[in-house]
Amino acid sequence: MSTVRLGRVLRPLRTLAHAFALLGGLAAFLVAMLTVASIAGRVLAGTPISGDVELTQFGVALAISLCLPWAQLHGANIIVDFFTQKLRAPARRRLDAVGALLMAVFCGLLAWRTAAGAFSVAAAGETTMILGAPMWISYAVLAPGLALIALIALVQAIGLWQGTLEQPAHAAEVGMQVAK
């Protein structure tokens, strides 16, 4: 695969990951609003929002899963680089390719199995306790984020191995993002 084509593959993935992360942040923010509304309902009217705990669990799980691909694109997942500082850049890049490949295996497995879990739970007819909402939804919504991070990690693994991609600065990047 040439540099150009790999870049072309990554660009839509980046756009998608960016959109996912924004949606994830929004979901967490909506959970915060829901919680505050529930507190207000409890304090002012004596009635909290029914099923607020279930909705919080659902919203936060969704939010986190949507945030995973963006973190992988930005190299936010912590690595230890102390023992490999003396290595030459190409060797380090190959190691990073292996690391990205293992991330792809890890997240790909989880994406696939979580989707399978959605089918099992749907077949069993499981629901949530208060709202009676179908349980499979809680499983199914996690799969897209997990699948996207697996895909991004796979593309990174190929690109890093070929030398057509650079590993984004790790760890510190977390701080930079926070600080910008």
Binding site: N77, F82, T84, G99
Partner: peptide, 8 residues
Amino acid sequence: ALRVPIAA
């Protein structure tokens, strides 16, 4: 030690 992300 070989730079694999800690989670993986």
